[in-house]
Amino acid sequence: MAALRARLVNPIVWRVPGHAARKLFSFSLAEHGSMLDLASAAHLAPDPERRALYLRHMLDEQRHARMFAMRSADLRLRDGRQSLGFPVADNEDLFERLGELRFLAFVHRGEKRGRQQFEAYRDWFQGRGDRKSASLFTAIIRDETRHEQYTHDLLVELAGSPARARAEIRAASLWEKWRIWRRLGRVIAEQAYFLAMSVIYLISGPFFRLAVRPRAAGWINHGAAPDAAHVPPPSREWSAA
């Protein structure tokens, strides 16, 4: 499904001027968000073997975030725009919130979806002769495939059976849908809020503008130091103006 969607939107996503760099930066942000969650997992997992697995995965995500950000910056600088900088994603604390098993199922789904999308993007760039972008996706797909595999194997091991692992993946899928629903709600609420605040601003702003005086510069005095009476008056020689 993810691959099909990616193939369908490819021509739109990558052809709109300036959009490719933003899209790559959004991948960078997603990888950085994933890196933050895996860093948490590497800190909190009780078993050193699993800490090591999460740590290696975290390093891959960190590298991917940097690769996407650098490619995005290349494209933007080439177009005379400034780079979007380093990605700083929000921390969702998924390891703590979901527990290790559900977290693994969630990561496994994400890796699978990411690999499918990236394969579609790689094919698109290969078809257009953009070897730099195609090789970026090729390198990352290799890691995503490995992540997809190990998260599945570990999930089965921790869940106790393939059937229980599948149940966890289904539960993670449901949780993801719930998250999408909540995010959608938040976006709508933000827009409604923005609109409401803008109306309030336009109505009340002119009146407040009349009532609220501009701030004067200079010192606002609050008091004197206990024994400051002996100190000399200000000297004019300090002024650089």
Binding site: Y193, F194, M197, Y201, P206, F208, V212, R215
Partner: peptide
């Protein structure tokens, strides 16, 4: 207050800052 002092130039700032 600082947003309102800058009316109407702060029309983008006010909703975002208040949010």
């Amino acid at each position: 207050l600082s947003s309102l002092r800058a009316f109407p130039r702060s029309w983008r700032h006010f909703p975002a800052a208040l949010q």
